[in-house]
């Protein structure tokens, strides 16, 4: 029963959503949007589960002094401070339990939550994102090492695209006569990005689309049950 009821619900909802794609008549036409709203409501409640998990895991780490438990203290303090400042003095457009905290604004320049958001959170986020530049460099170095025919082709294509997107690329091939202007580096780069790259991406997307249809059918028909913990 524990397994069958979710399977029946999945089947009924899946079939209904497929029908609603082709039937605009009420009530089918509004079902898809309505189910999305249900999902948002359920995920809103589920946030509480996430927070409980976060507190439980970190409190246990601190309690049993597990390795690196100090990080858990910082995590919990950060969570409590952000939730607390948000609840007490509100955010930019919302008033908190204690009002807007005008005296604090006079000192800090903004509400405590917004101050922390702008001066701590955003900088930390930007720091993580900027790591990507260094990781791209190290990954590109490994990818472009000429070992096989494929990596040679990748190397050549990458050089053409990179040079084609710089003023140096344009300068290097500016002398090429108009009759064979397709050899200009910016045009070559544009060609590579526009045709082979797009074709490859679309092939992947078509395959993925078919895969999604296949997986959905397996789930709707109850053949695929591992997402429910079954075989």
């Amino acid at each position: 029963m524990k397994r069958n009821i979710p399977l029946i619900i999945t089947f009924l909802v899946g079939i209904t959503v497929i029908f609603s794609e082709f039937i605009p008549h009420y009530p089918f036409g509004m079902l898809s949007g309505e189910l999305e709203n249900w999902f948002l409501i359920i995920s809103g409640f589920a946030i509480l589960l996430g927070q409980l998990s976060l507190f439980k895991v970190n409190i246990l780490k601190i309690k049993f002094k597990k390795e690196n438990w100090q990080y858990s203290v910082i995590t919990l303090i950060s969570v409590v401070v952000m939730i607390g400042t948000g609840l007490l003095w509100g955010t930019k457009d919302n008033t908190g339990i204690l009002g807007n905290g005008d005296q604090i604004i006079a000192v800090m320049g903004s509400k405590p939550f917004d101050y922390l958001f702008d001066n701590v959170y955003q900088h930390l986020q930007a720091t993580m994102f900027s790591l990507l530049a260094f990781f791209i460099a190290s990954a590109a170095y490994r990818a472009f090492i000429a070992r096989t025919t494929e990596s040679n082709l990748l190397l050549i294509a990458a050089i053409l695209v990179m040079l084609g997107n710089t003023s140096l690329g344009s300068f290097l091939t500016s002398w090429i006569p108009e009759a064979i202007s397709f050899l200009h580096l910016p045009k070559l780069a544009e060609f590579i990005m526009k045709y082979p790259t797009t074709a490859g991406q679309r092939a992947i997307m078509i395959g993925a689309g078919l895969g999604i249809i296949g997986s959905s059918l397996r789930i709707i028909l109850g053949i695929e049950r591992s997402y429910l913990g079954g075989k």
Binding site: G207, A208, L217, R218, I223, E224
Partner: peptide, 20 residues
């Protein structure tokens, strides 16, 4: 792409999943 969606059926080795 599609290999990700095929993974569960592939790993299960069940004939009806492989059929899909």
């Amino acid at each position: 792409g599609e290999e990700l969606f095929a993974a569960s059926a592939y790993l299960s080795k069940e004939p009806h999943q492989l059929g899909s």
